[in-house]
Amino acid sequence: MKRFSIAIVCGSLRRDSINRKIARSMCALGGERLDCRIVEIGDLALFNQDLEGEPPEAWVRFRREIVAADGVLFVSPEYNRSIPGALKNALDVGSRPYGQSVWSKKPAAIVTASPGAIGGFGANHQIRQACVFLDMPVMQHPEAYLGQVKDEAFGADGLLVDGPLKELVGKLAAAFADWVELIDKNQSELA
């Protein structure tokens, strides 16, 4: 069984955010097939085309980490019915310079989580829309808008405790592993 390297891009910069905890839980539940690592985005300078000639070290590091991954898991809250600014900036930084996007052909999944009822629905679809333009095959089903997520859903280790949410996130992890494997197999056959 092949193990896939997954870059987690988390829209929340807060160390103990529920989205980071969901990301870590999803990867722990897909542990045999997914080797996950959070790729930090908080240190990325705002995208400015003037910097492309001599890109900031954080841009170089970020692009290198995404290129090295077999797939990308976006896990994000929703801010003001939209994508958090740090995540949008990361999408832009990775898409440049023109013709050298690190996102192209990377299989992806999108999970949004919120203490609110709609689970980041708006941000989920805006990330999905950006991924279409960036030529990323995005897992279509199951969709993941996790609403009503509270801190009590996590144990002291920061991972989900047993219950319906953990079961759902486990199913998402399995589906994502299957998706990355399918895209990897298809791309290998086309090469």
Rank of each mutant, 00 (worst) to 15 (best):
K106L: 08
V67D: 14
A68V: 03
G163S: 08
G155L: 12
A153N: 03
G158D: 05
A130I: 05
G30W: 01
A123M: 04
A109E: 04
K2S: 12
D35E: 15
E78D: 14
P137K: 09
N124I: 01
S12R: 02
A191Y: 10
M136R: 01
A123W: 02
L44C: 10
N124R: 04
L172K: 10
G163H: 15
W59T: 06
G116H: 06
V161C: 14
Y145S: 12
I18Q: 05
C27S: 10
S25F: 03
D162W: 03
M1N: 08
E78A: 01
E65V: 07
P84L: 07
D178M: 11
V180H: 02
A173V: 07
E32I: 14
N186M: 13
I127M: 06
L34H: 02
R3F: 01
G147M: 08
G31W: 01
D151K: 11
V111R: 00
W103P: 01
A177Y: 00
V102A: 03
I22V: 06
A173L: 11
M139I: 10
G31D: 06
V149K: 06
I83A: 04
G42Q: 11
P84D: 08
E143M: 05
S17F: 00
E54V: 14
M26W: 04
V9K: 06
S25R: 07
L13E: 07
I6L: 13
S5F: 08
G42C: 07
I127N: 04
G122E: 13
K166H: 05
L165P: 02
I110P: 00
L51C: 05
A113M: 01
L91R: 00
K150C: 11
T112S: 13
M136D: 04
K171M: 10
A177V: 07
G94I: 11
F133A: 14
Y98G: 08
L29V: 15
L91E: 00
R33A: 13
L168R: 15
D92N: 06
A175E: 02
V161D: 00
P107A: 07
A23Y: 02
F176R: 01
E143P: 03
G120R: 04
Q100S: 15
K166F: 04
G94A: 07
E54C: 14
D135V: 08
I66T: 02
G170L: 11
V72Q: 03
V67F: 09
A28K: 08
G163I: 10
K166I: 10
G85L: 05
E181W: 05
K105R: 10
E167T: 14
L13D: 00
A144Q: 09
K2V: 15
E152A: 11
R37H: 08
R14S: 09
V169R: 02
K185A: 15
K105G: 09
F121M: 14
L134S: 07
V111A: 09
E143A: 09
H141Q: 13
P84Q: 07
Q148D: 01
L91D: 03
P137C: 12
